[in-house]
Amino acid sequence: MGKTIVIGSDHGGFNLKAVFIKTLEEWGYNVEDEGPDGLDSCDYPMFAAKVANKVKEDDSKLGILICGTGQGMTMTANRMGVRAALCTNEFLAEMAREHNDARILCLGERVTGQGLALAILKKFLETEFGGDRHQRRIDLIDTVSK
């Protein structure tokens, strides 16, 4: 089986989450869906926390969080100590992984079209962390944020 991706959304990101789950499974990934199960209004921090905790517990997993804008999910995941990146294009997704070792991709369904969102997802998943000088900078993030 392939790598495991943990995914969550709120009501504002639910439709894109469904598209991502189908696509990820077609691409050979194992998907853990942390909810929600429908379009009823819900609170994004609860779902961001579920995904962030699973990613934090297992270095082999990556996460995806989707809400209306991506902002709230990004803030919540970062607050929980997981590097999460709100990406609005493929270059940002590539740099978030290669330079910052982002473990969670955040997107806004209401601001990013489905085609672009899928391209961002693909780039995020295909890009590996560059290490070396970038690791030194990540270590500094952990040092200065204490």
Score class of each variant (00 low, 15 high):
126 E>S: 14
65 L>F: 06
63 G>N: 11
75 M>H: 12
135 Q>E: 13
110 R>C: 03
69 T>M: 08
50 K>R: 15
123 K>S: 07
89 N>V: 05
96 A>Y: 07
84 A>W: 01
56 K>E: 11
94 E>I: 01
52 A>K: 03
128 E>G: 09
63 G>I: 07
68 G>C: 10
91 F>D: 14
52 A>R: 02
142 D>V: 13
133 R>V: 01
138 I>F: 02
104 I>M: 05
127 T>M: 07
125 L>E: 02
108 G>S: 12
89 N>S: 07
127 T>N: 04
74 T>P: 00
134 H>D: 00
51 V>P: 01
57 E>L: 14
47 F>M: 07
137 R>N: 01
123 K>H: 04
96 A>H: 10
129 F>V: 06
108 G>N: 09
70 G>M: 11
118 L>G: 00
84 A>V: 01
49 A>Y: 10
56 K>L: 14
87 C>P: 14
79 R>L: 05
83 R>C: 08
71 Q>N: 14
74 T>H: 03
50 K>H: 06
101 D>N: 15
73 M>C: 06
70 G>N: 09
82 V>S: 06
137 R>G: 01
100 N>F: 08
137 R>T: 01
57 E>F: 13
81 G>M: 10
131 G>V: 08
129 F>K: 10
84 A>H: 00
68 G>I: 11
99 H>Q: 12
57 E>N: 15
101 D>F: 05
88 T>S: 07
135 Q>W: 02
50 K>W: 04
90 E>I: 03
89 N>G: 11
92 L>T: 14
55 V>D: 08
136 R>D: 02
118 L>E: 06
63 G>E: 06
59 D>C: 04
106 C>V: 04
76 T>I: 12
108 G>Q: 05
95 M>S: 10
98 E>H: 15
78 N>Y: 12
132 D>T: 12
58 D>I: 08
112 T>I: 15
53 N>I: 02
51 V>E: 01
85 A>R: 10
134 H>N: 04
124 F>C: 02
133 R>I: 00
84 A>Q: 05
49 A>G: 02
140 L>F: 14
75 M>W: 13
92 L>V: 11
63 G>T: 11
121 L>A: 06
73 M>L: 06
131 G>F: 09
116 L>D: 01
129 F>L: 07
112 T>Q: 07
93 A>I: 03
131 G>N: 09
48 A>S: 15
73 M>I: 05
60 S>D: 13
95 M>C: 07
105 L>E: 08
89 N>L: 03
61 K>E: 00
67 C>M: 04
